[in-house]
Design a binder for these strands. Structure first.
Lengths: 303, 303
DNA sequence: CTCATCATATAACGTTCCGTTATCCCGCGT
DNA sequence: ACGCGGGATAACGGAACGTTATATGATGAG
């Protein structure tokens, strides 16, 4: 019934004292104001201005509208400014979820980049393995996920999700074989997985364990998984003590490498892909875009 | 750029969880909401809603708009309600100016009527003689004036003003001749003015004095004005003491009639007209209308 | 007192906004 | 596989709102 434009006009009339002056101050022509007032008057069913010969003056009802104008216009401006701030990266929030081994390397670097460039953009960060982070993304609990997929295996499995999501490749992460220092193969650069068929294995997260099983099957054996932990420091500790061997992504080894653990190339080589995932809508949010860009740059450094 | 309708839509989407539900709650169709959101998004240059397969969810920027919606809509509703209250006589203010002798009779009665009918309409009241009250009306210092004009004299003089004003006739007020009790003519019902050519005269307000002079001239003499006061109680006191004779409007005599003062009809008879005056714009303001109506009714009682 | 001037009102017109109906497309659940 | 619920899109009509051109009325100066 009554809108912000009407209030703005009434306020201008009160401030300027005439239709013409109000029109100038609002960048309109005089008849525009004249008609606006007439429309307002017939909508509200009241007289809003007194027409004196030379100038005009607001009636009580007109003054009511002019008085409320400030409130409404201020709130409207505030809303506009807040949105503009988000659009202009002077504000904004990104809820990021990443899996543990990325959160030690690429992610902190990217967060630092974002913070340096856009100090007022807040990136909140939660650790989560790919299945949960993607679920959270779809549930609207996060805006951006850093996930991985072992090449050729469950990539196609997630693919069904990925076609409705925006995926940005960050880096390839070589999977290496971790052996204790005194192990017979420890001095080699490369080892075939089949040569370790009889060793006890130490597995990481469920997804990583799945990958191990897959690779082992291709090498012709079913691994004897003696330990299971998501903590790769613990994995390396177990390996160092000679309690088993493990597959460890290179990204982790570059961060924390136990001195008594040898890391060999696996043959045939296996890698996991790490990428940033978000929804098509969120991909167009400036703060999310900025975070993805920072992740890409951080990945180049760590690649 | 951004208007109240847009905010209302964003809030409805947030509250209802889908475009369709929002459309229903606002009484629109679904495409209307869809387009509204699209327009808002391209105007602000930001993504406002995430389209998930089944439902939608607001982005951060969208939430900002939804949050501000309450403020804006509340202020808008408040403004609308206040104006409606004025239109519905549940509120409103009338600044009334009336000349002294009316303020003792018709005006208080009218004010009581207004207060009884519309308890929340406030009528403020200031005493002023016609020239000032009409000036105040044109200066915007009052909304309604109760004025008088002696018939055939300055009526035409004010007429130039009155064609641009709204005049409502209230009543005719007979002008009577006040004589002291023992005066030779005191026992008559009627007296010719010429018979009092040699008496000392007591004049009221400037306008009344003008009327006296005018009537005397027509009767063939120039009155000897011995006293001049705007207070008609004082006038009657002077008359009672035999210090002079006076013309006094009947309206006053009906309120306060000095026991030793005789009031005769004047021949030829003379009356003053009492009317309510306002501007064409103000005449359409409900509270002003109501006050005029009350004045008319009060005048009928006092007529 | 008349005239120039300034301000509002009105008429006529074009554009934009914003709603509608009719339809298509997609994700999801049976 | 199919139906259904929900959003997007196209086409269209009307109302809102701006413009220019012009009339009307009040005011102040010569």
């Amino acid at each position: 019934m009554i809108d912000a434009a009407g209030l703005r006009v009434m306020k201008a009339i009160q401030d300027e004292g005439s239709f013409t002056a109000a029109a100038v101050s609002l960048g309109y022509t005089q008849p525009a104001i004249s008609q606006m007032v007439r429309r307002l008057e017939q909508r509200t069913g009241t007289v809003l201005v007194e027409r004196l010969g030379r100038s005009v003056r607001l009636t009580e009802a007109g003054q009511v509208l002019a008085r409320h104008a400030s409130t409404v216009l201020a709130a409207l401006d505030a809303a506009e400014e807040e949105v503009a701030a988000i659009a202009g990266l002077r504000s904004g929030r990104v809820r990021l979820m990443a899996f543990p081994s990325s959160s030690a390397t690429v992610v902190p670097h990217a967060l630092a980049l974002v913070k340096r460039r856009y100090p007022d953009v807040v990136v909140t960060f939660t650790e989560a393995e790919p299945p949960e982070s993607l679920a959270a993304l779809k549930a609207g609990e996060c805006d951006l996920a850093v996930a991985f997929s072992y090449e050729g295996i469950d990539l196609s499995e997630i693919q069904e999700d990925l076609d409705s999501l925006v995926v940005t490749k960050l880096l390839d992460d070589e999977v290496r074989l971790a052996l204790p220092d005194g192990h017979p193969l420890a001095d080699q650069d490369t080892a075939e997985l089949g040569a370790l068929a009889d060793e006890p294995w130490i597995a990481g997260c469920p997804k990583c364990r799945g990958h191990l099983v897959h690779l082992a099957r291709e090498a012709g054996f079913a691994p004897n998984v003696a330990f299971e932990t998501e903590d790769y420091v613990a994995v390396q500790g177990l390996v160092a003590e000679g309690l088993g061997v493990a597959l460890i992504p290179d990204l982790i080894l570059r961060t924390t490498h136990h001195p008594s653990v040898r890391a060999l190339q696996v043959s045939p080589s296996s890698r996991r892909e790490i990428f940033a995932v978000t929804t098509p809508d969120l991909a167009r949010v400036p703060a999310v875009q900025a975070t993805i860009e920072a992740l890409v740059e951080a990945a180049e450094v760590h690649g």
